[in-house]
């Protein structure tokens, strides 16, 4: 069969909503796009642990500490699901991690912002995880089977992340004047970066978007962003707080909220590595990786030793294991 025929067959499967599985034929560009997207998603989960890890030891109560630890542990698991999904496309885990550590691979820019107060933990849960969930719910129906399955698992676990964040802000919003101010300040700082998470405006993109055609993505950046804005405008009322955008206004004709212009210079600046914490995040990753080296080596040596002791023909002795 010619490559052209294979491509037609492939597109036909996509159009009929048949999932693509690892051993199926796929265009090289489909493979590459998925590897890039899934590994970036994985890196985002892993780097995403850092801004929150910062607050585990300083959580205001044992309950909040346990919740935060559970959330960060989930994120490590989500990173694993995604690395495994990306590996099915032929890139090794080592390569992906090396690309992250060398600065070659990307992760979501949102994690390059600092977490200055405890209220940031609530704002991240509500806004950042809220934005991520909209994207991830859509990705549950993505065309690549292993990615879709990882997303289903992640979405199941992730809804508690958003709820705990909102609840945490709710407590602050009913607290002292200082606590209320802290809550509003965190919302002010995280609102715009959260809107940036959805990426550039649709008008800045090419019409023939391959990702949509291949159903890797099923909604445009602006569609998801609008959905997020409409959702948050209502939710923030329950907190008795405000969103830092004077242009926010219900638009009867569109049936949606209008909102102000995003600072795209800031967006590209952070993407390009000049955000407040880009360097700090990568340094922390590299350090953790280096300091875990002896653990990985010891585990591998232990496994070798056990294997030898269970298999005397290879020179070991039969241990009473």
């Amino acid at each position: 069969m010619s490559v052209h025929d294979l491509e037609n067959l492939f597109q036909q499967k996509i159009d009929e909503e048949v999932k693509i599985e690892p051993k199926d034929w796929m265009p090289e560009a489909y493979r590459k796009t998925n590897i890039r997207q899934i590994s970036q998603h994985a890196h985002s989960e892993i780097v995403g642990m850092l801004p929150e890890g910062n607050w585990i030891s300083r959580a205001p109560s044992l309950k909040r500490k346990a919740i935060l630890m559970a959330k960060v542990q989930d994120e490590a698991g989500h990173g694993l699901y995604l690395y495994c999904a990306a590996e099915t496309l032929g890139m090794s885990r080592e390569e992906m991690i090396n690309d992250l550590h060398s600065g070659k691979a990307k992760y979501s820019s949102i994690f390059n912002y600092p977490t200055l107060t405890w209220a940031d933990m609530g704002a991240i849960g509500w806004l950042v995880d809220g934005a991520a969930i909209l994207n991830q719910v859509m990705l549950c129906r993505t065309s690549y089977g292993p990615y879709a399955r990882a997303m289903v698992r992640i979405c199941k676990e992730e809804s508690f992340h958003q709820r705990q964040g909102f609840e945490s802000l709710l407590v602050l919003s009913k607290g002292t004047d200082e606590q209320k101010a802290m809550c509003q300040d965190a919302i002010n700082r995280w609102w715009w970066p959260s809107l940036m998470m959805f990426g550039p405006k649709d008008s800045e993109s090419t019409n023939s978007d391959q990702s949509m055609k291949w159903k890797i993505k099923r909604k445009t950046n602006d569609e998801l962003r609008q959905q997020f804005v409409d959702m948050c405008v209502e939710q923030v009322k329950l907190l008795g707080m405000t969103l830092p955008d004077p242009a926010l206004k219900w638009n009867e004709a569109r049936g949606h909220y209008d909102f102000g212009e995003i600072d795209w210079n800031e967006f590209w600046n952070v993407v390009k590595g000049n955000g407040p914490c880009n360097k700090q995040r990568l340094d922390a990753r590299r350090k953790a990786h280096e300091e875990g080296r002896w653990v990985r080596e010891a585990a591998a040596a232990h496994a070798e030793k056990r294997k030898a002791s269970l298999n005397p023909s290879k020179g070991g002795t039969l241990a009473a294991a």
Partner: peptide, 13 residues
């Protein structure tokens, strides 16, 4: 898209 930034735009240091 979110999670789909080209690798050429290097992050960090």
């Amino acid at each position: 898209y979110y999670g789909d930034i080209p690798d050429s735009n290097s992050g960090g240091d």
